[in-house]
């Protein structure tokens, strides 16, 4: 099937780019830069592979970065020093590769003395939070929806007066590795509630939510023979709520649901967006570049 074993959306030239400060409205420092300047950020933004390389997922990454910047959160990324957490390798059975990745990442994180991490990928979230501690990596790990909730609650992030999503029908697809895996059903819903939108729950949600079909390394292979694609079946459940927006909290779910919406020929009626993107559109984000 066309969407299996997918390669990320690729619009840009692969290869090293010259650093061009003027292209950005604000600067996102790497840990290396920060450390060289003798500074340490409040949080590390762990971007993840999809968020770093997939064009669609990069838009989510940028939305998160803009939110952090607007809330004046002191943050940094690892940049080239970040590497796959090893989730797809481990779930596919390659424990060696996973533990090599984990050892390398833990050495990097511990080398910088990282204490608090936020990430936009529930798979990275699960690895960093649950599976790295035993290997020597102990951090406080937050999913971006948990951190955004914190920013709103502490008044660091405000919704704009326009309320672009007011009254619009939004359904939320629970990522397995945020929901069932880690019991976090509330944070994404509380953040959505700030949009003043109409949250339409799917028939199967929270503990009973159906998988998008990408987990367990499925994203990187053809589906086994069957009657249907998992993501098409799940998208149908989302479309039953007649949403204007299908909200996601995972770059892989986002890809799968987007493909499902296309398959159902609904792309002109239904948007698939990460909660970070919705908030970035609705919040009062400062346009002034950070120093």
């Amino acid at each position: 099937m066309a969407h299996r074993g997918r390669f990320p959306q690729e619009a840009e030239v692969i290869g090293p780019k010259k650093y061009n400060h003027t292209m950005s409205s604000f600067h996102i420092p790497t840990m290396a830069e920060m450390t060289a300047a003798g500074k340490a950020p409040e949080v590390l933004f762990w971007v993840g592979c999809a968020g770093s390389f997939d064009d669609r997922a990069k838009r989510i990454t940028k939305a998160i970065a803009r939110i952090l910047n607007a809330a004046e959160t002191s943050f940094a990324v690892l940049g080239q020093e970040e590497s796959c957490t090893g989730d797809p390798a481990k779930r596919a059975g390659n424990e060696f590769l996973y533990q090599m990745q984990a050892a390398q990442n833990i050495a990097t994180l511990n080398g910088y003395g990282i204490k608090r991490i936020i990430t936009g990928c529930p798979h990275c979230f699960n690895m960093l939070k649950n599976e790295y501690p035993e290997l020597g990596g102990q951090y406080e790990v937050l999913h971006h929806t948990q951190f955004i909730r914190e920013l709103i609650e502490t008044g660091k992030l405000r919704m704009s007066g326009d309320q672009p999503f007011k009254g619009r029908r939004i359904t939320f697809h629970d990522p397995c590795y945020l929901g069932r895996a880690n019991g976090e059903y509330l944070a994404p819903r509380e953040v959505i509630s700030k949009l003043d939108a109409e949250l339409m729950e799917m028939r199967r949600c929270k503990q009973n939510a159906m998988c998008c079909g990408a987990g367990g390394a499925q994203m990187f292979k053809e589906a086994e023979p069957g009657e249907r694609e998992v993501n098409h079946a799940r998208t149908d459940e989302a479309l039953e709520t007649q949403p204007e927006v299908i909200a996601t909290g995972c770059p892989f779910c986002n890809t799968m649901m987007t493909d499902g919406v296309k398959n159902a020929n609904q792309e002109s009626n239904v948007e698939v967006k990460d909660i970070a993107e919705l908030i970035a559109e609705a919040a009062d984000l400062l346009e002034t570049p950070a120093s």
């Binding site: 840009e12 090293p16 910047n69 990324v77």
Partner: peptide, 12 residues
Amino acid sequence: PAGSRGDWTQEV
């Protein structure tokens, strides 16, 4: 390439 991992930071 691992080297392009941080490229998005120049597009925000």
